[in-house]
């Protein structure tokens, strides 16, 4: 039997069909500086040009034998399309991700334009998806969107939003409904682009910030609406930070897989959810891929993730692009070799 392509491996994973080995891919940003250097470009330029975005994603995956790609790289795309501006840091040294400079400061100011989907960089990102699908048909293509709560924090001041949850409940809930509809529209759009999976990242909603009670009433129901709208492709519910207290509610939102970061106790999570749930995570990307100086330590981190009961080893957040080459190689190699054994939800051929 011929070896599976990365795309086939990822597709089978989501269908829980037997695999040759664990796929190595991510729903978080996985672009690396080695790819950017090989292309002769700069980090600040890969966010605004479809070809550079597509090429940097493909080159990053090819350099390290990853099974898939995910774009875009920054979380400011939708806020920018709504007219909130963009800071690209084109003259700054090193790696700085784009940010949103002009968030709305009160609920009264919010005016989401109807045509946002055709504004800012969103059409360029669609073009980048097209290029990737044409030029790397063997790779799984992932899209990601911000979950409603985190998107709300990108378009209006986070402290006002957080206080509004307590002080101005009805108006804030109505605003979150509005933002949920934006996220629903975005996931429907990416489904039409025929991506291989969609990751919904509500990374600002963990219990580092919100109480489980608040999550249950103001985050969970909106996420459920988003996952209900993803009908044609597999979906992932990713939250970084503290998730132990909300993991069961995350599961009830209806995604095909859950993704958590290094703060989650995966062994306990697996006990709570059972072996049939696809669970991804949960290594610390900065420490593991950038800081560790001995690849044996990297290997140990990845093996521990697999032994703890994960079905795919994902970084807990975006990979910091300035990785140590040998650490990244060890991450992928360990997943593919040590991942030959069955994971809780997915058997092996």
């Amino acid at each position: 039997m011929s070896e599976l392509t990365g795309k086939e491996r990822v597709q089978k994973l989501f269908k829980k069909e037997p695999l040759d080995t664990m796929p190595c891919f991510s729903g978080q940003g996985a672009v690396v500086v080695q790819a950017i250097e090989e292309m002769g470009t700069q980090f600040a330029k890969i966010h605004t040009d479809a070809r550079l975005m597509a090429q940097s994603a493909i080159t990053s995956a090819r350099l390290f034998n990853m099974d898939g790609v995910v774009i875009p790289y920054d979380m400011a795309t939708v806020a920018e399309a709504m007219g909130r501006g963009i800071s690209l840091y084109e003259n700054a040294d090193g790696v700085i991700y784009p940010t949103v400079p002009n968030k709305w400061k009160t609920l009264d100011e919010i005016d989401i334009p109807k045509d946002y989907m055709s504004q800012g960089r969103l059409p360029m990102i669609d073009e980048a998806f097209k290029i990737i699908k044409e030029e790397a048909p063997d790779l799984a293509v992932g899209a990601w969107v911000l979950g409603p709560f985190t998107l709300a924090g990108q378009i209006m001041e986070l402290d006002i939003l957080l206080k509004g949850l307590k002080k101005n409940k009805d108006a804030t809930a109505a605003f979150l409904d509005q933002v949920t509809q934006v996220t629903v529209d975005m996931v429907k759009h990416y489904q039409e682009l025929d991506v291989d999976f969609i990751s919904v990242r509500d990374m600002g909603s963990g219990t580092d910030l919100l109480s489980p009670r608040m999550w249950k009433t103001l985050v969970g129901p909106n996420l459920k609406k988003v996952f209900d709208a993803i009908t044609c492709v597999p979906s992932v519910n990713h939250i970084c930070g503290s998730t132990d207290m909300i993991i069961e509610m995350m599961h009830e939102c209806g995604a095909d897989a859950l993704s958590v970061d290094q703060k989650n106790n995966v062994v306990t999570t697996r006990e709570k959810l059972g072996n049939d749930v696809l669970l991804f995570g949960n290594f610390d990307p900065y420490n593991t891929l950038t800081q560790l100086e001995d690849v044996k330590e990297v290997e140990a981190v990845i093996k521990q993730c697999i032994d703890n009961g994960l079905d795919a080893v994902w970084p807990g957040c975006d990979i910091w692009p300035d990785i140590r080459k040998e650490n990244m190689e060890t991450y992928v190699k360990t997943v593919k070799e040590y991942g030959k054994k069955a994971s809780p939800a997915v058997g092996r051929i």
Partner: peptide
């Protein structure tokens, strides 16, 4: 002790 979260703390600071 997980009785207050960040929204409450922000309001206390105000």
């Amino acid at each position: 002790t997980n009785e207050y979260f960040v929204p409450e703390v922000l309001m206390c600071a105000d």
